[in-house]
């Protein structure tokens, strides 16, 4: 317990601010939001990803993560969420080193598509820029987003995730203090 760093300094307003940013991010896919009042999360957790889990995860939401024992201990202590070894059994997944296969995650059922996992993916870079052109609900015409550090074949996996709508996994991309969300309805094309 000795090396445990603190969570939110002021949990109620911090969780509200983080949730509001997430709600905006989910409602306007691909817009990059910068969070303030972030917790001191141990490496390799990105502060934005850690804040998101403190905001949303608790005893009711099994979490899967590959971030290592220090991060696991921090999340278990501050969020109080059970950790699971199987990605398919988790409601939240925090991927800090590589991405679990989207098809293997809980996608909900046709009747209850909200019982699906949310994948928090830490990436190397996240900017508004020329990499992707996003369309779908929440986007007036198109949003541009540049993401660095995604595995090869991501776009094909994302298209397959969108094709099973209303089932599917929702994605939150995080780096440092920034995040952007990709709900299952967002279509991605490579801008070129």
């Amino acid at each position: 317990m000795s090396g445990l760093t603190p969570g939110f300094a002021d949990p109620v307003p911090a969780a509200q601010a983080c949730f509001r940013a997430l709600l905006e991010a989910m409602a306007r896919p691909g817009r990059v939001h910068r969070l303030a009042g972030l917790p001191e999360a141990p490496a390799p957790l990105a502060p934005a990803a850690a804040a998101m889990l403190l905001t949303l995860a608790d005893a009711e939401t099994p979490l899967w993560t590959d971030a290592g024992p220090v991060a696991e201990e921090w999340l278990r202590f501050h969020a109080g969420c059970p950790l699971v070894a199987e990605p398919g059994a988790a409601s939240f997944l925090l991927a800090a080193c590589g991405m679990p296969e989207l098809a293997a995650l809980e996608a909900g059922t046709e009747e209850e598509p909200h019982r699906s996992a949310t994948l928090v993916l830490q990436v190397a870079g996240l900017e508004r820029g020329a990499g992707w052109r996003l369309t779908g609900p929440g986007i007036e015409t198109e949003h541009l987003l540049e993401v660095e550090g995604l595995p090869r074949g991501f776009l094909a996996a994302w298209a397959a995730n969108g094709a099973r709508f209303p089932r599917g996994v929702d994605l939150v991309l995080c780096t440092g203090d920034r995040l952007a969300a990709l709900p299952r309805t967002t279509r991605i094309e490579e801008a070129g």
């Binding site: 949990p11 109620v12 307003p13 969780a15 509200q16 949730f19 997430l22 709600l23 989910m26 409602a27 905001t55 949303l56 995860a57 608790d58 009711e60 939401t61 598509p113 909200h114 699906s116 949310t118 609900p137 929440g138 209303p166 929702d170 709900p183 299952r184 309805t185």
Partner: peptide, 27 residues
């Protein structure tokens, strides 16, 4: 009272529901 009347556990549950609701428009 907690800020906004509801306790934080309830807010978290509602916030998770809201995010999924936004991700699946109309569901």
């Amino acid at each position: 009272y907690n800020f906004g009347y509801l306790d934080e556990n309830t807010k978290r549950m509602i916030r998770r529901a809201l995010l999924k609701a936004v991700a699946i428009p109309g569901h």
